[in-house]
Design a binder for these strands. Structure first.
Lengths: 201, 201
DNA sequence: TTTTTGACTGTAGAAATAAAAAAGTCAGAA
DNA sequence: TTCTGACTTTTTTATTTCTACAGTCAAAAA
């Protein structure tokens, strides 16, 4: 059974490689299988369908994301430092996994099954919880005023995601945002974050 | 010539009525003509093409918008009051002209000509200038700290538009957002605006 | 028994084509 | 100068065809 998990991990990693370059919908199960030098039915032995594989991919990516967030959080003292670091992490993941359209705050069309949408929303909720906890700590330490942390965390993340969403919508209709646009998004997110935090004091 | 302008106004108003209900692309020049009990070539006598008519519509709507903004601004004392009033005005226009997809911060696909996109961007710039002036006044009166007002105005408006953008993207895929979604957007925009202003002090 | 495969099927989406509708024009009337 | 019926051209939409992909299965390999 531990061998099975290993194989599953290998398949997920192979899938991610394809997904990153060509997106979920433009990647076929055959291509993933060929990359790993196995047959398609082998894939279906480990994952009942493509959605399950995508689910595995999403879980892996967000698991990495939250791991990094937890780690980074420990090394930061002020709320501002902490949230600035988080912006950088999100930016890194946004760039790396852009083709999967996991950002944007809402489930993408490429996540076509209910299970996938549910998983995505669960990750979003977990992210909000995480940020709420960070905010709560800042409240407890008297860094910011007492607030409804879950609500403010949601608002904060939405304001951040909104910046991204608008820049992508607005920008060139290429399938990938330009380096300059990416930089602009990052700068705006940092600016907005600073003002936001100051507004909580 | 003043008669001509009168006719143009009438046509624009007729077009707006259709656009509000069915959107720009689902409204034909024939329908607009029939509503006004004139022939299609009459329309083309006053507007060389559909884009010109749409341009007239956009100019009319934004002219109304800025007029209302100017008027409301005069009656408000604090920056917070002022921006709160602006949110209400934008919300009103957003609801009324939702089918035209004029919000969202970036030119919609229904604005298909370069001239239209340019006009839209000009209106966006004017809106930013307007907000920058309001911010500058608050700076001059010592209400908020000294800032790069054009830049902060852009960031402020983008944070506000981002909320809308995300809610629409996220929400039910109906062609019109629900009453509840509209309310949520409004509340979030007010919350974010308050925090934002406080962060500028 | 667990894992893997070649060869297969039904379906969903792309590409091509046909049909409909709408934008835009023009000669001429009011 | 303003307006119109009748027309042409372009764009959009609906329909069909075709292809490529997701998913299956009986059987072989480990």
């Amino acid at each position: 059974m531990v061998e099975t998990d290993k194989k599953r991990e290998l398949i997920i990693e192979g899938a991610i490689k394809r997904f990153i370059h060509y997106g979920i919908n433009k990647t076929t199960m055959n291509e993933i299988a060929d990359d790993l030098s196995v047959s398609k039915p082998s894939l279906y032995y480990y994952f009942p369908d493509k959605s399950s594989l995508i689910l595995g991919v999403i879980e892996k990516i967000f698991s990495d994301y939250f791991e990094l967030m937890e780690k980074d959080q420990a090394s930061k003292n002020t709320l501002e430092e902490c949230l600035a670091a988080f912006i950088e992490i999100r930016h890194k993941f946004f760039q790396k996994y852009y083709m999967l359209h996991l950002s944007g705050g809402s489930p993408d069309a490429s996540l076509n099954s209910d299970a996938l949408r549910a998983a995505f929303l669960a990750m979003k909720a977990k992210n909000e919880d995480f940020h709420a906890k960070v905010l709560q700590r800042a409240v407890d330490q008297g860094e910011i005023a007492a607030i409804d942390t879950p609500k403010i965390a949601e608002l904060y993340l939405e304001s951040q995601a909104g910046i991204t969403s608008l820049c992508i919508l607005h920008g060139n209709k290429e399938l990938f945002p330009s380096k300059k646009e990416m930089k602009t998004i990052l700068e705006k997110q940092h600016s907005l974050s600073k003002i936001f935090i100051k507004g909580l004091k």
